[in-house]
Amino acid sequence: MTMINRLVHQGTFLPVLTVVASLIVIWYAGAVYLNSTQLIDRYQKKGVDWDISRLAQDAWKMERPVLPAPHQVGVELKKTVIDKRVTSKRSLVYHAGITLSSSLLGFALGTLLGIALAIGIVYVTTLDRSLMPWIIASQTVPILALAPMIIVVLGSIGITGLFPKSVISMYLCFFPVVVGMVKGLRSPEPILIDQMRTYSASPTQIFFKLRLPASIPFLFASLKVAIALSVVGAIVAELPTGGQGGLGARLLTGSYYGQITMIWSALIVASVVSALLVTAVGRLERIALRKLNGGQAVAV
């Protein structure tokens, strides 16, 4: 209730509501438009008289629509999220859990790798020159092409399950972290570095007392990008692993069996998972930055 109060009070409630309402209207209209070819074909074969209102009604309750109507996706979501037990293989919560765990592991590994590489780049001149081009090149390889190979290669040396999928999330995650952290570790002004020199501070002391705290705002900006990428990575990783579960596997199953509604509900759950993760990182960011600014509120 307080949340809604705040939304109304801040004047964001109405705009958000308007956008959501128009999206739903567009979605319903789109469902009629995209499903019409199929329906009109059917009407003509059967010689049925039809008008636009009949077309709309039929379009919104098709068994195998090209674009399901919002309420159809809603029904599917209720069935797979609320009605099914969480342990059931048909529960989207179960599948979301699988995707979530490999995204989080990949996110953690990617963040650590990114920070480690950034430290190397900032402190070792040779790494600065040699690593960065490779890091950038790594992101130009389409992840969709790379993912099956990583799964197969790791599978052939006996590593299966969660880890190979996390490797793919990690592969996407480390990049924004490296870029942000390199910038962040280099962000202290020259005057602060000079000051450390007047204290004859060791490189380790400069790192922990100055560079690392100064990099935190940059780290969080990167983490928000990375956490969303980690979900993408986990889903992409689940596509070649097929039946093992996860939202990616669910998407694949949906497309095998032409269950478009199933794909849409998996997509919606995936975006809800991403949104929750991004929000969580955003909350942490706010707390961290507040502390970093001596308790002063910060615009994020």
Binding site: E189, I191, L192, D194, Q195, T198, S200, P213, G294, Q296
Partner: peptide
């Protein structure tokens, strides 16, 4: 550590009291 240096700007750390 023979000297103390005061810079043009206070150069304080915002996260420290």
């Amino acid at each position: 550590r023979a000297y103390g240096y005061v810079f043009q700007a206070p150069a304080l750390y915002p996260w420290r009291t």
